[in-house]
């Protein structure tokens, strides 16, 4: 019983192959980021021109992955969208999309990093600085943090007042020079250029100024409270 039949005899090739592939996987973890960069540069022109959408089904290059933490989110448009600034402020305000578009716009190009490791290089972001909205509202002296809420009814993100005032924290109205699509969290979403993607609330509906910096949705589930890119 210890010796399989002659046809099954031979070298333990399977064990070597499995160990070899596990080693290759480890090498891939260390070098994969760079390989992905190269592939992405090579394939970006193909993916942008792919009319079939098939290339989005396979992990070619750096592509967007769309996250939603609730069931289907009811889309809002220019007519139905509002952003409320509330909480510990002297002048609470409600902005329509047109109001936001009329404010000074900030544009920058920044890579989007998901904390799990995927990324999308060189994304052009345009929007209103959160700092401008906070200045207009005038946080009271006991204000400590900011809570961004989503009209998906569930998602929220915390930041300290100082973090939210950074120059690269914007209520994004455009990505790639186009209005933010529903899947990307449009008509308005937050993007924080120096932080991981989870700090950017999609389908933004409210900015509440708070007396604390209590954890938001993913922060409550173990992601860092600050969310700054670490490398």
């Amino acid at each position: 019983m210890t010796d399989p039949s002659a046809a099954d005899a031979g070298a333990p090739v399977g064990r070597r192959v499995v160990l070899g592939l596990l080693g290759l996987g480890a090498v891939g973890v260390v070098t994969g980021g760079a390989v992905q960069d190269g592939l992405s540069r090579l394939l970006a022109p193909i993916q942008l021109r792919d009319p079939t959408g098939l290339t989005s089904l396979i992990p070619l290059g750096d592509t967007w992955r769309y996250y939603s933490v609730t069931g289907a989110v009811e889309p809002r448009d220019a007519a139905s969208y509002t952003l409320a600034v509330t909480g510990l402020v002297d002048e609470p305000a409600t902005y329509s999309l047109a109001d936001l578009e009329a404010l000074p716009q900030t544009s920058f190009v920044r890579t989007f990093y998901c904390i799990t490791g995927w990324r999308v290089p060189d994304v052009p972001w345009t929007g209103v600085r959160v700092a401008d909205l906070l200045d207009a509202a005038g946080p009271t002296s006991d204000a400590v943090g900011v809570r961004f809420r989503s009209f998906d009814g569930t998602y929220s993100v915390n930041m300290t007042l100082a973090q939210a005032r950074a120059r690269d924290v914007v209520v994004t109205l455009q990505m790639y020079g186009e209005p933010v699509t529903h899947d990307h969290g449009g008509p308005a979403r937050v993007h924080a250029g120096s932080m991981y993607g989870y700090k950017g609330t999609k389908w933004l509906s409210e900015i509440e100024v708070t007396p604390d910096n209590a954890p938001g949705y993913w922060e409550d589930r173990g992601y860092p409270l600050d969310g700054y890119l670490d490398e």
Partner: peptide, 9 residues
């Protein structure tokens, strides 16, 4: 992060 990118890849 760079290893997490590699792991995702």
């Amino acid at each position: 992060l760079s290893w997490r990118s590699g792991a995702t890849f």
